[in-house]
């Protein structure tokens, strides 16, 4: 059994740009297998685990956390060997200048996204953000060689290995939302120690960053009586508003708002208080921007709870989370599932 921090690092370093999750699905299935009765990978590369409940007629609880990450896609290979690209998911163009990347071609290729030397920038352009279409990936190959190894449509991920920081924190490229997957594993670990009546379906989902695709498919196929979504929310940084950013290390942020089921949310908050599990309140007045929006309206509608792990610097290659929050999230979810009324 891997310690939570090590697992987060291992998961963060997997490469699974939205739409190319198949390269990472086996690794996640293997992690789930340690705690589940059944594990399978569905046709869209959602990784599904089932931990059976003990009731004779168990209900189904669905827990999802997406495992895709934002990245880039090769749109053209120029005669000079440079690669043009477009973003996959919400990539902030400001973060990718002067970046090391891996191009997933015939085999993985090292590349860099260049940047103009400051000396050469026209002073009039200094305040403008660069556009994607003006940037290139340099893989150091001739056009001929590049075309042999790279195809239009190949995905590109960022090179930014996860590392341990002070205060039990970790920084890495895809903690959004591999730390959510790690929280699912924490939930399963905790559930092993507890009795639970209901079937627990855990799903590491795909293509969230492209419009909740994996979640939409998962909650249609698995008839759930309750869904729990684990994702990240904004960690607090200087200048962020108090009602939409949350300090690291103070526990999971329990979402509250129109599309989240009030009764369950209240019960979850009460449980956290009673069990002294650290938590925060995350007001979500709209769609939440998470898979909760998909599950809430799946088929007849599924009551949804949203648990978020505060992450600083979201959608940059140096996202930062606290391991303590991941553990707290897993504990809270597991206790809630085990403590449900029969």
């Amino acid at each position: 059994m891997m310690h939570c921090g090590e697992l987060i690092i291992k998961l963060s370093d997997l490469r699974a740009v939205s739409g190319r999750e198949n390269e990472a699905s086996d690794a996640i299935a293997e992690v789930f297998r340690e705690y589940c009765d059944e594990v399978y990978i569905d046709g869209f590369y959602n990784v599904v685990g089932l931990k059976k409940g003990q009731a004779s007629e168990p209900k189904n609880i669905l827990i999802t956390a997406h495992y895709d990450e934002i990245g880039l896609i090769v749109t053209d290979i120029e005669e000079s060997g440079f690669l043009r690209f477009a973003p996959v998911g919400g990539v902030d163009v400001k973060t990718i200048g002067a970046m090391e990347v891996t191009v997933h071609g015939k085999h993985d290729l090292f590349g860099v996204i260049g940047a103009k030397a400051p000396h050469l920038i026209d002073p009039a352009d200094k305040d403008k953000a660069v556009k994607f279409e003006d940037m290139r990936i340099d893989i150091g190959l001739s056009g001929e060689k590049a075309k042999e190894l790279v195809t239009i449509g190949d995905m590109v991920s960022f090179n930014s290995p996860a590392q341990k920081m002070m205060n039990n924190r970790i920084a890495g490229k895809s903690l959004d939302n591999r730390c959510g997957v790690a929280a699912i594993v924490e939930t399963l670990k905790e559930l092993k120690k507890l009795n639970h009546d209901d079937n627990v379906y855990v799903v590491a989902t795909v293509q969230e960053e492209l419009g909740l695709i994996g979640a939409i498919c998962a909650s249609y196929r698995i008839d759930a009586d309750l869904a729990i979504v684990i994702d990240v929310c904004h960690g607090d940084m200087p200048g962020t508003p108090a009602d939409s950013s949350f300090p690291l290390g103070k526990g999971t942020a329990i979402g509250i708002g129109p599309i989240l089921n009030r009764e369950h949310v209240k019960a979850m908050i009460k449980l956290a208080k009673d069990e002294h599990i650290p938590y925060q309140i995350d007001p979500e007045t709209g769609d939440t921007g998470t898979e909760a929006a998909a599950h809430a309206v799946a088929k007849e509608g599924i009551p949804v709870i949203l648990l978020s792990i505060p992450s600083k610097y979201m959608h940059t290659p140096v996202e930062m989370i606290s391991v303590d929050d991941v553990i707290a999230t897993g504990r809270l979810a597991a206790r809630y599932i085990a403590g449900r009324e029969k």
């Binding site: 939205s18 739409g19 198949n22 046709g43 869209f44 896609i73 749109t75 053209d76 043009r84 996959v88 279409e133 239009i152 449509g153 293509q207 492209l210």
Partner: peptide, 28 residues
């Protein structure tokens, strides 16, 4: 024009991605 590696007359295109979908690998 905006950069796009598609030319008139060079054959029908096999979709890899548009704003609504990334094609399923099995189909592509």
């Amino acid at each position: 024009s905006k950069p796009m590696a598609v030319r008139l007359g060079a054959g029908p295109t096999i979709k890899i991605k548009d704003a609504s979908v990334i094609s399923h690998p099995a189909v592509k």
